[in-house]
Simulated assay, not measured.
Amino acid sequence: MWAGRAVLWALIVVIVVNGVRAPFERFTRQSAPAGTAPAVSESGFPTTQGTSFAIQFAAVYLNFDGARPQERAGRLAPYLPEGAEAQFGWDGFGRMSAGAVQPYGVEVVDADNAVVTLTYQSSDRRQLLSVPVYYDRAAERFVVSGRPGILPAPEPANLPPKAAPDRDGTAERELRTPLEDFFKAYAAGDTASLQRYADAGVTLEGLDGAFTFMALKELVVPLAGGTTREVTATVVWGVPSGPTPSPDSTAPDPGQVGGKLEQAYLLTMVKQGDKWFVKDIRGAHRSVG
């Protein structure tokens, strides 16, 4: 009997403790500020914050001009350890320009050290930059811990050929004129006109005049039947020109002449009666051929 009473009281204590602890834990989780905890690797290195720090450093490090060396030195200072050379390996001559700096990978050495690899574009070259980074856990700060290294970026992958689908010529002829009108409205961002081409319950937004419609170059409708089709359209947009050249210009600047840009879209089309309506528009899949 005493053993049974002891078990019963132990069970009551466990229930009471859990009942008090659960709402307390929910309250503390809800009151904690969202998005403050950095993403960390298994070793504890904060990879997200470390990568952001390395990207900012690379945007300064990879751009220099011998005519303005002090400007670069001042911008580099927030990333370098105390006592580091102001130009961090550059002799102050020459010129380099780089952009499109993006994360490529992180090699975590331990909880305080990692090598962040970035990809960047300089002239017609795509290359990598490895940046060693140290994390001061107590101060929650980063610093570049050694000389970066420029590496060649991987070559583009070999794209295997893809067979073209069997095409529905009848549907392509039916869709050409309605889609030409649709893309004219899509380029202009004409909401009222767009809704005339939209399927029931679908709201479409256009490009708001950023481009003009030039031509529907190609339209591919797979032979598979049905009232719903996945249609690939290659559209030629008109690209706006630059400012009007001055009257004394001797030769036209290509940037001041309107251009053309071909782009591909995948549209989900729905046929109702004898008319086709757009249910969805998005970027197309890979090209055929």
Rank of each mutant, 00 (worst) to 15 (best):
R5G: 04
L8H: 09
V14C: 13
G19M: 01
A22I: 00
A22S: 11
E25S: 08
S31F: 01
S31T: 14
S31R: 15
V40E: 15
E42H: 02
E42W: 02
S43V: 03
S43M: 10
S43Y: 02
T48R: 06
S52L: 13
A54G: 10
A54D: 11
A58D: 10
D65Y: 11
G66L: 03
R68E: 12
E71Q: 15
E71I: 02
R75M: 14
R75P: 05
L76N: 05
L76E: 04
F88K: 01
W90V: 03
G92S: 09
M96Q: 15
A98V: 08
G99T: 11
V101W: 05
V108P: 02
V109G: 00
D112K: 13
D112S: 10
D112Y: 00
N113R: 14
A114W: 04
V115H: 04
V115R: 12
V116R: 07
L118W: 05
Y120M: 03
S122I: 06
D124R: 15
R126A: 14
Q127Y: 02
Q127M: 14
L128C: 10
S130V: 03
D136E: 14
S145Q: 15
P148V: 12
P160I: 10
P160T: 12
P160H: 10
P165E: 08
A171G: 04
E172K: 03
E174P: 03
P178W: 04
P178F: 05
A188R: 14
S193R: 11
Q195K: 08
A198T: 00
D199S: 09
G201D: 01
E205M: 04
G209D: 04
G209T: 11
T212N: 14
M214D: 14
L216V: 08
L216T: 11
K217R: 15
E218F: 05
L219G: 04
V221T: 13
G225Y: 00
G226E: 01
G226C: 09
V235T: 06
V236N: 09
V236K: 10
P243K: 05
P245K: 00
P247R: 04
T250V: 10
A251T: 12
D253Q: 03
P254D: 08
K260T: 14
K271F: 01
W276H: 07
K279V: 03
D280S: 12
I281F: 00
R282Q: 12
